[in-house]
């Protein structure tokens, strides 16, 4: 310390006076950049096309959409937990690992933004890409409405459930991508974690568990699963507990992301 007194130039006029920038503004700036990043590379296009192709294939070819003679999208949504299992980690794997690989994380986190704004901004951007792909399945809704009289309330609930499900998977992918600069590692880790969330409540697995574990234990495990909550919403019941489940998975994983990022920076 050479200067004992506070230098006269301590107070500085900067173009962005404190308080002028809202945190929402920062989040939106980051989200905008990330979304344009997805569309500047083939990632978004490849994802959307493959999602639509696979969704169509499973709905029409595997599930015999037409032969069932029902005007509903149950067979469309039933595949989403499996479809998202690979596609969502593929979209989310670059979220933080790319920042770490390029070193841009150092730029981003030394800007006047909080880590939370960056985490939420990036998460929203990837979610928007997923929601966009899902929205492009609207011809299915038109088709069933043309062919019969479906319960559109259930269809809306189905879409809400699907959006929440993709958000939950995506938050897991965000978390694993913060762990490593290697996108492949990030992808595999998040697929495994998402698979666990599916299998924990998937009837073939729970049926197996019942044989040797206490029923309360099986129930506790399956409460962690996305399946029970996703199925409940697919039935057209928007129960606050199911909504709370997905929201808590997202909040928990994003919180863990912030912890991982901070730990990584602290060295």
């Amino acid at each position: 310390m050479t200067a004992d007194t506070i230098p006269a130039d301590t107070v500085v006029n900067v173009p962005d006076a404190p308080g002028k920038r809202s945190s929402l503004g920062n989040i939106l700036t980051i989200t905008k950049r990330e979304v344009s990043g997805y569309f500047a590379s083939p990632v978004a296009y490849v994802f959307i096309v493959i999602f639509l192709l696979l969704a169509g294939f499973f709905t029409f070819m595997v599930s015999d959409f037409f032969d069932r003679g029902q005007a509903s999208l149950v067979m469309f949504f039933a595949w989403h937990p499996w479809l998202y299992l690979f596609l969502v980690p593929a979209v989310g794997m670059r979220m933080w690992s790319e920042e770490r690989r390029l070193g841009t994380i150092e730029l981003l986190l030394t800007m006047p933004v909080t880590p939370w704004q960056a985490i939420v901004g990036k998460f929203l951007a990837s979610w928007i890409v997923l929601i966009l792909a899902l929205a492009l399945t609207f011809p299915l809704v038109i088709t069933v409405n043309y062919l019969g009289n479906p319960d559109n309330g259930i269809i809306v609930a189905g879409y809400v459930g699907s959006v929440l499900l993709s958000g939950a998977y995506l938050s897991i992918a965000a978390m694993t991508s913060a762990m490593t600069r290697n996108q492949v590692v990030s992808f595999i880790l998040s697929v495994v974690l998402c698979l666990f969330l599916i299998l924990a409540g998937w009837p073939p697995v729970t049926d197996l568990l019942v044989h040797w574990a206490n029923p309360w234990f099986v129930q506790a495990i399956s409460a962690f699963s996305v399946m029970a909550h996703f199925d409940a919403i697919q039935k057209g019941v928007l129960d606050s507990r199911d909504l709370l489940y997905f929201i808590s998975v997202i909040v928990f994983c994003l919180f863990t992301t912030s912890v991982i990022l901070r730990t990584h920076r602290a060295g």
Binding site: K20, L102, G103, L107, P112, V113
Partner: peptide, 30 residues
Amino acid sequence: RLIGYLPENAPSYTDMTVRGFLNFAAELRG
């Protein structure tokens, strides 16, 4: 807010144009 920083190896978002990148930085700077 008071600091401008050029990190080691000068990282930048490679998928952006120069204008897009500078716009992004300017927006985060308010």
